[in-house]
Design a protein around this nucleic acid. Structure first.
Lengths: 237, 237
DNA sequence: TAAGACAAAAATATAGAAAAAAGCGGACCC
DNA sequence: GGGTCCGCTTTTTTCTATATTTTTGTCTTA
């Protein structure tokens, strides 16, 4: 009769939606630290250090880094460890062009194939984002996170009816990369003042709801290109 | 007294271009086995078994599998191990559509930006492929591998001057996935008889050399779509 | 037949050993 | 006197063997 070999000793807290394995928790945390620029681009990642910080073993960290490599958030040189993927103007330009092309493709098919359920989800995502935009996100950290989440959901929902899993996977990858650049250039009010982001979103949303493919794609492209321009000029690359 | 646990016991031979680490050797081997369908799609991959087969430890295999996951050649369910990525008609269709779109994009910019050095490399790749095609590849295994390599090089060179690393990375991923499907459907002579693959390649090559973008893209699309159709009808998915 | 416990197998985690690279100090040469 | 190269020490990455946890298949029992 083995009593209490303690299933709950490790993590009594629910800890969000982590799939149990320690590798995945490490992955989630390192990923968040990279996206939030706690680990700056180009930094060498010390495996032992990370393992000590989050109280897991080397192997777990190593596996987490492998996962991150698949999203191109870190790069590894054999026998020389892992580093946070560096950033550059060229990279930003490549990502932006690729993203415009692929998102446009996804958006076209999404509008063509989208049914009522999709429209409903899109309306919901739009509603959340537009309400949050009114409350001046950006100052307080929590609100900014919530807005980022809503923004990601809205963009994801736009192409949600595309149906091509491979294109969607690539879109997701590029979105994430763009996010990393965007977050490097937060709090540049003087430039954002000349720009009405909610209006750009509204333009996309309206065109999509009217099923005007070309106008929707044009509005999306405009939105992405403007974002990239702002990011580029505000970040010292 | 530990005798000769030997730094050179494992691989005295140069073993091609493997970057030394055992993880990477394991990665290379498993990858080859998946692409050659030694490990069939959908198969569960036993970590301990693989480790024993190639005489490395669990950790090395685990890391190799992580790398493969980033190329979408294997998928993992937490706590339930790894399986070779399954195949399906839907997947093939998605890959084909995505590939046509992205390769077309890459080809356009490649033709626009390509300089003389690129043209020369392309001519070289074309020459190799066309010579190999004449010798009836397909029967003997080695020749077939050589042809595959030349075919891959030719297609890679077509888009070699594109310049957008992100698009190229995605193209490479999709090419690899297509290869896996293609190799599942080898030796179906009756269908290939009605098709002249070298001529399709020549059509692409000629259009590119004349810098006729639209014709080149159309020829490429035709080539990819025909390949997908053959594969689809010849494989029992 | 279905529920539950047991046993086997497989996946994940850990700690420490081996190998490789990086950092460092001193000697040697120009 | 200054610069460069060689060896050693230290750090870091990689690997292995073993332990722990989870899942899965089976067999009993009501």
């Amino acid at each position: 009769m083995k009593i209490i070999h303690s299933p709950a000793e490790t993590a009594p807290a629910p800890m969000a939606e982590s799939p149990g394995t320690k590798s995945h928790r490490a992955y989630t945390q390192i990923r968040a630290d990279i996206l939030s620029c706690t680990h700056l681009p180009g930094t060498k990642l010390n495996i032992a250090g990370l393992a000590a910080d989050m109280d897991v073993s080397l192997g777990a960290v190593r596996e987490a880094l492998s996962m991150l490599q698949s999203e191109a958030l870190v790069v590894s040189e054999p026998q020389r460890g892992y580093t946070v993927s560096p950033v550059s103007p060229k990279e930003l330009a490549d990502i932006t062009e690729a993203r415009i092309a692929i998102e446009a493709l996804c958006l076209r098919t999404s509008i063509e194939r989208g049914d009522l359920a999709w429209e409903s989800r899109l309306v919901a995502a739009w509603h959340r984002l537009s309400r949050l935009s009114q409350t001046e996100a950006g100052r307080d950290q929590h609100l900014s996170d919530v807005w980022s989440r809503a923004h990601a959901d809205f963009h994801a929902e736009l192409v949600g009816a595309c149906g091509n899993d491979w294109l969607l996977r690539m879109r997701a990858m590029l979105y994430e990369q763009s996010e990393r650049y965007r977050r490097m250039s937060v709090s540049v009010p003087q430039q954002n003042a000349t720009r009405d982001v909610p209006a750009e979103h509204k333009a996309i949303f309206d065109a999509v709801m009217e099923r005007d493919i070309d106008r929707a794609v044009a509005a999306l492209e405009n939105h992405l290109r403007k974002t990239a321009t702002i990011v580029r000029s505000s970040v010292a690359l």
